[in-house]
Design a protein around this nucleic acid. Structure first.
Length: 462
RNA sequence: UGGUCAGUAGCUCAGUCGGCAGAGCAAGUGGCUGUUAACCACUGGGUCGGGGGUUCAAGUCCCUCCUGACCAGCCA
């Protein structure tokens, strides 16, 4: 007898074989003389209907006591189902109960709010919504590796713990083994980090980019895909304190090629899920957001708009009366403007590039106008910023001047400057927020629903 | 962190002008020979987020704290 997953049973070419299937009961319906069990094993969104006749061993004592959430192993024969909405069903010969779920089991056979499910993150992957997100997330992870591996990129594991104090991408979580109540002090009274585990202040990484550059300038094209930490007090449906970021870094790439790769990457991943995860997308399109398919088809099949920051500001200035915060050249583009550009003006992804140097990071390459840098953001409808990237400043003197001018210390960046000192080359890269991509693909509204265990201010449960 | 809105049964919610605490689903019991968010009948289930105040009387009005959602900022 074959031990099959529900997904495999539903894909069988024909009925008639004996199978063993394991799973959890979604719902049970009793009739006179038999029961219907809806069993889901997480292998796919669909459940399999199991018919248990009262002649099965232990029917009255055990089967009738099965509740929603109970875990079972069923042995039976696959038959064509006369019922609606399913190809096959299983006529049970034997049902083994691993565990009954008592009446307080919180998942009922009804709609639950996503807010409620966040309170029970240990049980929520058993639901259609979170189960589908989980399968889709796994699939997309594989797609990310496939995209880069197929193109000769090497996967680099950049450090989680870093002593680069000012990577310039936000507040950092401190990593220490010092006793916070009795931390050693220097003569001046400051905390003496020389006595800490790493001998200097250490934090969780806010980006693998700087280390990614090291490997790009050795291996050519590389990418990272790992957890990233920001200690910002952000309370929005688009931010997490711990999230997963994909950061490719390419030697001998200029900004144009960087944008080309970003566009190709997003399109590849969108096509990937359209191809591999149609069951999950069907669910999201039906239950979460009816525009999922049209949006994904649109992204997969149209060229992204590309405009300079200066052009973007011109467009926005014409419509300044529509904004809470009017724009002018030199100000940062805010989320209402991002959405206006990608949703109202172009209705597709937009890449904005060549930003004023004052509002971008120190490592971005200064353009010949000496006012803008080779930065680019990919803005998508509904989400806003999905990708942020740039061509890196590869000229030693320019970079060193820039580091000094914003008050950073060249000594802290000695190895970063060394990359420009010894055989420098033009290079570029970008960062894509993995959870934001999943928001885009699923149509879900809150980033806390697309990561298994969300971390945000005041919350690191489970 | 600031602004807005919300918190009532296990879940989703209603509760009018301040006047007996409600519904659907879930749970329990019984019924039903093919159901599929099964159906029918009955039963149990409440710190109305916490604390304080106004009032003869507060789920309802006032103050305060907590929690959540949304908008904004930080960004991916």
């Amino acid at each position: 007898m074959q031990n099959l997953r529900v997904k495999e049973i539903l894909n069988l070419p024909e009925s008639g074989i004996q199978v063993k299937v394991n799973g959890w009961v979604r719902t049970k319906r009793d009739s006179k003389g038999f029961s219907f069990l809806e069993v889901n094993d997480g292998s796919c969104i669909k459940s399999i209907q199991v018919i248990v006749d009262s002649s099965v061993d232990g029917y009255a004592e055990n089967i009738l006591k099965i509740t929603t959430g109970s875990s079972l192993t069923i042995k039976g024969v696959v038959k064509d189902s006369p019922g609606k909405g399913q190809k096959y069903e299983i006529h049970a010969g034997n049902v083994f109960i691993h565990g009954i779920a008592p009446q307080e089991y919180p998942l009922q056979k009804k709609h639950h709010s996503l807010e409620f499910l966040r309170e029970i993150a240990h049980l929520r992957p058993r639901t259609n919504a979170i189960g589908s997100v989980s399968r889709l997330r796994s699939s997309l992870s594989y797609g990310v590796h496939q995209f880069f591996q197929d193109r000769g990129f090497y996967y680099v594991n950049t450090p989680i713990i870093t002593t680069s104090d000012c990577e310039g991408a936000g507040e950092m979580f401190r990593v220490t083994t010092l006793d916070l109540r009795e931390a050693p002090r220097t003569e001046k009274g400051d905390i003496d980090y020389a006595k800490d585990f790493f001998g200097k202040p250490a934090s969780l990484t806010v980006s693998g980019q700087l280390e990614g550059e090291i490997y790009a300038l050795s291996l050519g094209n590389v990418y990272t895909f790992g957890p990233t930490f920001r200690a910002e007090n952000s309370n929005t449906p688009r931010h997490l304190a711990e999230f997963w970021m994909i950061e490719p870094e390419m030697a001998f790439y200029h900004l144009k090629e960087d944008m080309d790769l970003a566009e190709e990457f997003v399109k590849f991943l969108v096509k990937y899920v359209l191809d591999k995860n149609s069951d999950e997308l069907d669910f999201f399109n039906a239950r979460i957001d009816t525009t999922v398919f049209s949006r994904l088809e649109n992204i997969a099949n149209t060229s992204f708009e590309r405009i300079t920051y200066t052009e973007a500001i011109k467009i926005l200035e014409k419509n300044n009366n529509e904004f809470e915060f009017p724009v002018s050249w030199g100000v940062d583009i805010q989320s209402e403007h991002e959405k206006y550009l990608s949703e109202k003006v172009f209705n597709k992804p937009v890449i904005v590039f060549d930003y004023p140097k004052e509002i971008k990071a120190f490592y971005m390459r200064l353009n010949d106008d000496e006012k803008t840098v080779g930065a680019m953001d990919v803005l998508v409808p509904r989400i806003g910023e999905l990708i942020g990237g740039s061509e890196r400043e590869e000229r030693y003197e320019m970079l060193s001047k820039r580091i000094r001018s914003i008050g950073l210390s060249e000594e802290d960046y000695w190895w970063y400057l060394d990359l420009r000192k010894y055989g420098t080359v033009p290079h570029a890269g970008f960062g894509l927020g993995f959870e934001r991509l999943i928001l885009l693909v699923t149509g879900l509204q809150n980033i806390r629903d697309v990561i298994p265990f969300p971390r945000y201010p005041g919350n690191a449960r489970f």
